[in-house]
């Protein structure tokens, strides 16, 4: 099949970018979306044009490195990551608009590549349980009810891709942050730092320039791991509790 691609090109963070149009023929529907871009790049390289820069690593939907805004949807039309999107989700003759994640906290590095370091810094602010290597008690000393463990797991599947931020009209990273707060907050091991964790993470989130959450729900619809909005409620609950405890 044949597609028309409109792709954001921007040589580096400092330069201005613009949309460029490319025609691509011979696309097979078994290709993944990124393999389609590989083919485009191979052609651009052949013609002596700079290939389009985009991020990907595992290409199996787990590392969270990939992430494109495709026709106005984060990770495209399916509930999955960009790397797991296949061309059979498109039709012959389609026009496909491809943009980077847009958020001031995610500055564009080049073309479709953005810097998501802000998410690391939110984790640094408190997204962990403080336990030095070697100081852990025997694993069975603290049983965890199966349902709690399951709930923790379900939200621990966040891959840190940033699609929630990209899709959010407010540019908020609350879903990402809520997922971590819920993951650790569900477990007995996470209780001692529960108050400081939420306060510090939220402070860092706001400091990074993410917007505030108004519970619109675009994040969860874009999330390839289907992290539910519950986690934002949990985040708020924990935040209020922490404030009541004097934080």
């Amino acid at each position: 099949m044949k597609v028309t691609l409109k792709i954001w090109r921007q040589p580096d963070a400092a330069s201005k970018g613009a949309m460029h149009t490319y025609e691509l023929d011979g696309v097979s529907e078994d290709m993944s979306f990124l393999e389609m871009l590989d083919v485009l790049n191979e052609q651009l390289n052949g013609k002596g044009e700079d290939p389009v820069a985009f991020d990907s690593d595992c290409r199996e939907g787990i590392c969270g490195m990939c992430g494109l805004m495709i026709n106005g949807e984060a990770h495209g039309p399916e509930v999955t990551t960009t790397c797991q999107l296949h061309m059979r989700s498109f039709k012959d003759g389609d026009e496909i608009v491809i943009e980077p994640w847009r958020a001031d906290a995610f500055p564009v590095v080049k073309d479709l590549v953005v810097d998501r370091g802000a998410l690391d810094r939110i984790i640094q602010a408190g997204g962990y349980i403080s336990v030095n290597t070697g100081s852990a008690p025997e694993a069975h000393s603290v049983p965890v009810p199966r349902d709690d463990a399951l709930r923790a797991f379900n939200v621990a599947t966040c891959i840190g891709c940033g699609a929630c931020v990209a899709a959010c009209p407010n540019g908020s990273a609350s879903l990402f942050m809520g997922a971590k707060i819920t993951h650790l907050g569900e477990l007995p091991q996470g209780q001692p730092e529960r108050d400081t964790r939420v306060v510090d993470m939220v402070a860092q989130h706001d400091h990074e320039g993410f917007g505030g959450c108004t519970n619109i729900g675009e994040c969860t619809a874009a999330c390839p791991k289907e992290i539910p909005l519950d986690v934002i409620s949990r985040l708020n609950w924990d935040l209020h509790q922490a404030m009541r405890h004097g934080h």
Partner: peptide, 22 residues
């Protein structure tokens, strides 16, 4: 065996049985 202890303490959500054990 130490690895499992360490990971559980960090909050790694391993699968558990109904009794709450791993």
């Amino acid at each position: 065996t130490n690895i499992i202890d360490q990971c559980v303490a960090q909050g790694v959500p391993f699968a558990r049985e109904y009794g709450g054990l791993l």
